[in-house]
Nucleic acid binder design. Structure first.
Lengths: 226, 226
DNA sequence: ATTTGTGAATGTCTTCACAGCC
DNA sequence: GGCTGTGAAGACATTCACAAAT
């Protein structure tokens, strides 16, 4: 009998690489689709195709979680789904506050995809007095000075910043002071946060600008060939 | 006298790495801020701080475009801004069509940040008959069967897909057939496209799920230490 | 004296290719 | 026979540290 740290098995290697973590939700989505279609089992090739990645990469990614496949057979969809869900913390729901209820914040509040992925939007906050008290996606918009109280009361650890760029740093400071340790930032600004706080940035303009870059290169090349 | 390929100087190394391309828009934004503040010159340390990256990384990134700094002095803000803008194709405006005018598509249509970054939303398309003919952000929503015509008429090369996941692949096929070669995909689905077509994916649920993963790890650790 | 531009070193991610197991 | 799990190789990205330039 081996010694256990706690009630669940300790994954072998520990420390899943960042690149892998970023893909696990994609695999989980593909597994959900397979499960709904009634597929009982799948190979790494099948699953990789559904997720849009190289099969070797998929296998290496999964190997960081443990050894859940059967050689010569493949993966049991239901079992793997359960293990991946556990690995990324989807066995519980995470309460999230959205700061900034402009067009983007409103869209995020109403986004259907969150609830089935363990994300629960539980509060909306804005600085604009004309928005406060209005109802968006079934939630009342609260004033920004209530933010520390909201975070504390509900034990919120994850926040979305969808304010204008100029307000983002100030909001982030308030969030961090209140106890938030994970921020998803849609504002076009770099957020400075203390160690131990996680920031992910989504920048809509930048995504299109990157596409424009490649588009331009294509245009330059065909021009040169012509 | 060296031989020139065409009227502008050919960048020395060619082929800017992907990771660099993804950061160039960030640098451009920081340079714009410096220019507006009236700063005439800046060092790599200054600019890196504004962009939130390591100075050595910034210098290596810029070195892929050319040699636009002065040793012992730094970079001329206005000049560097111009060069970075040219590198990422921001000297011209790119016409973009948005497919899917739900909450997210509407938010994107109204997004203020695009116009100043060379992105022009010129058409909106949806499959829902109740939305067709309505005006969103000053544009009339057109039916999805007009998509090929819209792309062809305006010579559109970049499209945004903001449909439900189930419709995304079909829309992508139509876009590619019509001549689009760059797609920004917000739908929660993997798009299969021919070689030569560029797809970038933004998945809002996944971003939050990645944060939740790290959040869970933090919780597990403090629990183990306690 | 100061700051760029860059070879070299390090770190990280991806892909190959096959041993090991069913 | 078929498929997983993984060591080893390769590709790519980041960071260091310093020579070259003003």
């Amino acid at each position: 009998m081996t010694i256990l740290r706690n009630d669940r098995t300790v994954p072998p290697g520990r420390e899943v690489p960042d690149a892998t973590v970023a893909r696990l939700p994609v695999y989980l989505r593909a597994l959900n689709a397979l499960a709904e279609a009634g597929t009982p089992t799948c190979s790494s090739v099948d699953l990789a195709a559904a997720a849009g990645v190289n099969p070797a990469k998929l296998r290496k990614d999964l190997s960081h979680l443990g050894s859940y496949g059967t050689r010569g057979v493949g993966y049991d969809v239901e079992h793997l789904r359960h293990e991946v869900a556990r690995a990324i913390g989807q066995t519980q729901d995470w309460d999230v506050v959205i700061v900034g209820v402009g067009h983007l914040g409103t869209a995020l509040s109403s986004y259907q995809g969150f609830s089935t992925r363990g994300i629960r939007i539980v509060a909306l906050v804005d600085a604009d007095p004309t928005r406060i008290g209005t109802t968006v996606a079934g939630l009342e918009v609260e004033p920004v000075d209530r933010l520390p109280a909201i975070v504390a009361e509900r034990g919120i650890r994850i926040a979305v910043v969808a304010t204008p760029g100029a307000a983002a740093q100030e909001v982030a400071d308030v969030l961090v002071a209140a106890g938030v340790t994970s921020i998803l930032n849609f504002a076009p600004a770099h957020l400075e946060v203390p160690n131990g706080v996680d920031v992910r940035k989504v920048d809509l303009s930048i995504e299109l600008q990157i596409l424009a870059y490649h588009q331009q290169r294509r245009a330059d090349e065909t021009e040169a060939t012509a």
